[in-house]
Simulated assay, not measured.
Amino acid sequence: MASFPNIYNHRKVADTASKACEICYKPSTSVLVTPENKDFFYVCPAHLKDKGFCSPIIDEAALAAKEKKEIDAEIERLNKEFKEKQRKKKDKEKEKEKDKDKDKKEDDKKDDKKPEDKKSEEVTAPALDEEPRVFALKKTFYQQRIDKKRNAEIAKRNRERLQNPNLFPQVPKGLP
C-alpha cells in the first residue's frame, strides 16, 4: 500500500452532513481531506488550532500574492481619491472664474451654485479567511491515520478471500 502525503486541506460541509469528530466525537462540519482524496476525516475547528494535533502549512507565494493584491488595491484607492480631489479643486477654480465673470456682467444677480460634492467610494476588499486551510498532522496522528487505512485494506482483503470458494480445502472424493 502506498501511503498518502501528510498534507490535509480543510473543507466545510453542510450542517446536515455533519458527522462525529475523530477526536472528541462531537458533531462537526469541518473535514480534513488529502489532495488525492485518499483519506478524510471529520474534526472540530478547535482541534485545528491545537498545536499538539496539527500545524498549518503556510504557502509563502500565496501570502506574498495576497499582500501585493492588498497593496495594489490601496494604491488604486488612493489614486482615485487624489484624482477626485484634483477634479474638485479645478471645479472650484472654474466656479470662481465664472463667478467673477458673472459679477462683472451682472452686479445685481448672484449665482449661489455650489460644485457637487462627490465623495469617493472606498473600495474594501472582501474579508478573506484568515484561518489556514492546509495542515500537516503531527507524527502520532498521521501514523494513526496510516494504520487505520492499512487495517481497513487488510480487513477488505480478508472479506474478499472468505467469499472465494477455493480458499477452503475440498472434501476428499476417493476412498481412503
Rank of each mutant, 00 (worst) to 15 (best):
L78R: 13
K89E: 13
F135W: 09
N37W: 04
K96W: 04
V33A: 03
F40G: 01
E160T: 10
V13N: 05
N37A: 07
Q144Y: 09
E106T: 08
N79F: 05
A46K: 00
E22C: 14
L167V: 12
K102G: 02
V171P: 07
P176V: 06
H47R: 00
K68Y: 01
D99K: 10
R77F: 05
S28A: 14
N6G: 08
H47W: 04
P169S: 12
T29E: 07
K113F: 10
K119P: 05
P5M: 10
K26W: 01
E84G: 03
D111T: 00
D107G: 12
R159F: 09
E116R: 08
D108P: 00
K69P: 01
E97R: 12
F53T: 05
S30M: 06
N164E: 12
K19G: 03
E84N: 13
K149A: 15
K94H: 03
K68H: 06
I58K: 13
P45A: 05
T140W: 03
K119C: 05
H47N: 02
S18W: 01
Q163I: 09
F40D: 03
A17W: 09
K156Q: 14
F135V: 07
V123I: 14
S28H: 04
K19F: 04
R87S: 09
V171L: 13
K156D: 15
Q170H: 08
L175M: 09
E84P: 00
D59I: 06
K94T: 08
E131C: 06
L63K: 15
C24W: 01
K148G: 06
A62S: 12
P35I: 05
E70P: 02
T140Q: 12
L167S: 04
V13E: 11
K12A: 12
R157A: 14
T140G: 02
Q170E: 15
E84Q: 10
P5C: 08
L32Q: 05
D117V: 15
A61W: 02
K139N: 08
K69S: 11
A64G: 02
L175T: 06
C21Y: 01
N151Q: 14
K85R: 15
E22P: 00
N166H: 06
F53C: 02
